[in-house]
Design a binder for these strands. Sequence first.
DNA 1: TCGAAAAATGTTTACGCAAACATTGCGTGA
DNA 2: TCACGCAATGTTTGCGTAAACATTTTTCGA
Lengths: 355, 355
Amino acid sequence: MSSVVEPGIVPVRPTPVAARRSVSMGDVARLAGVSAQTVSRVANGAANVDAATREKVLNAMRELGYRPNSAARSLKRGAFHSIGVIVFALSTYGSSRTLDGLAQAASAAGYSLTLMPVEGSNTPDNVNRAFAALAEQAVDGVIIEIEAHRMDEVEIVIPEWMPVVVIASRERSDRPAIDADQATGARLVMEHLFELGHTRIAHVAGPADAYSAIQRELGWHGALEARGLEPAQMVRGDWTPESGYEIGCRLAARPDELPTAIFAANDQMALGLMRALHEHGVDVPSRVSVAGFDDMPESANFWPPLTTIRQDFTGLGVRSVATLLDEMSRPHPRPGFEVVPVELVVRASTARALF
Amino acid sequence: MSSVVEPGIVPVRPTPVAARRSVSMGDVARLAGVSAQTVSRVANGAANVDAATREKVLNAMRELGYRPNSAARSLKRGAFHSIGVIVFALSTYGSSRTLDGLAQAASAAGYSLTLMPVEGSNTPDNVNRAFAALAEQAVDGVIIEIEAHRMDEVEIVIPEWMPVVVIASRERSDRPAIDADQATGARLVMEHLFELGHTRIAHVAGPADAYSAIQRELGWHGALEARGLEPAQMVRGDWTPESGYEIGCRLAARPDELPTAIFAANDQMALGLMRALHEHGVDVPSRVSVAGFDDMPESANFWPPLTTIRQDFTGLGVRSVATLLDEMSRPHPRPGFEVVPVELVVRASTARALF
DNA sequence: TCGAAAAATGTTTACGCAAACATTGCGTGA
DNA sequence: TCACGCAATGTTTGCGTAAACATTTTTCGA
């Protein structure tokens, strides 16, 4: 059960600086010898302003170094032109790339991004706290990217008036969600391995509470099932290269049970896995093929270069922003699930199965 | 010469949504049977409110789902409780980790982060544009992180009233700057290699327009000079693993000129470099030692695990935010240069020189 | 040349909040 | 008992902007 977040009780510390008073429209108007409204019109590019007047006002603006006050503007217009982003951590490759995509897309649409990191772990409580903080911030909508397997309506309370788009987590029926096509990605990897003649294919999965981890795992399992093959080992890591390394050591410790191919749920774990295999004298790919998921910039230069799934993080960002803008334009949420295509990148870490 | 950015002429597109009118203090006050001012006092945690009254108001807030309007609050108080961040790209490991550190620190201090990506390349023009956009956004101060070698006063115009902290770029005398201790990092790597008996040490440098690239390069050169050693090859890459790979291929093509150790300016290039060496049958570290800079999460699982410099990105973020808050509290900028310590991490990619 | 329409510009007002000042009511000590 | 002080609460005001409406000036056809 999640605790109730008190509405707006947090005491805001007083501004330390003696607010350096800035230039207002009135100042510009006085200097230009016009009314404040005319200044406003010039500032907003209204058409019905005489060219000479506009020039006068622009000069006054320059002279005084006028900058529109976005707080006043937002107050008046009821919109902030800013998108809030709730992220769990930027430490993983995928999340920072996605954020980059979001930033580009938002900037192109004339919006800025307000970051709201989830503190500690991504428990519903902490996410709700981030939401509360963001609700009081100046945002017109929110994009949630917390890699959570479950985003249950009961646990994570989204204010109904707030336009929201969810990334990398589908389990909500009330809001639109977007994600890379995890299922297809996993299937592409498996089909590639099948074509190379592999039948004993293990899986190094991600944490059970990560949505994408579950999707990839299901993809692995489903592909085997569809061919009537017995699933080989399935071991769960935590996305880090270290967990991949440990799992690799454990697998290599029993050479007789070693599969001919391993599908790791991300590139980092694949990297650790390959190091473990190297250390144990298991050659990749001649003895064991390894495939990953993400296509980090490093993956092409792993040893050996890694076969993996390339995700279109920029596309994901663009689609998310577009969907959020659409959400903001309609009175009610339009739930749905949108998928961004992925691509198989074949490199040297996978090879034909020997036996 | 940099173009002048027009003040606030960009037409702001009208809000598409029929602004969902939200609950104001007046609404709460009416329901609770008190004045709006009392609601304000409760919302801001003022002490002089009767317990019973406070409870009444809190109940009314909950019932109506009241959220403070931050635009009005900012307008009234002249502060936004938000920090702007100008980043060039989040695609590199260091920049996204630093951003993560900034986000944590800002959040802890009660500030949110407003992201302003620099579009295209990080030319002074584009940076100025980002600044102009940010100046109109609702921020109390700005942290600049654009990895620029030069941040000349003439080219990048920082509004004098705006509190600013610069990361990873020192060449300004008018604002405080913070960076990881690049020079010491480079020295630590070199001393480590010297201890292993290396004297022919090449350097794979970063792009000439990156401040940290220059610092590391100077560190490499200076350490050699201090020992009276002849610098071996110096080749410039662009931070990417691919550039490291290409350089590695070029180096390996002339085995007779091959140095006994290579210091790469970041881990990614070191990775590409090592792949090239593997492919050309040059063993790391027995034939050539390789060291990097950054300590990415992957580096411990490269093959071989990479000796490198660990940067304290979180510390960098914390220090930057603290310095910015300090800047915000004083009427005039306090220029200075602060350095965050780094740490040498010795792994398997470096070994005693054979000859 | 006149008058109506259109264009340019000005005036009023309200957005939601909180500082500053004003008022009420209550308890305390002489 | 009353005057005083102080805590609790109310009223007024203005932050900078832009919508709505009002007024002035210009344009142009008959």
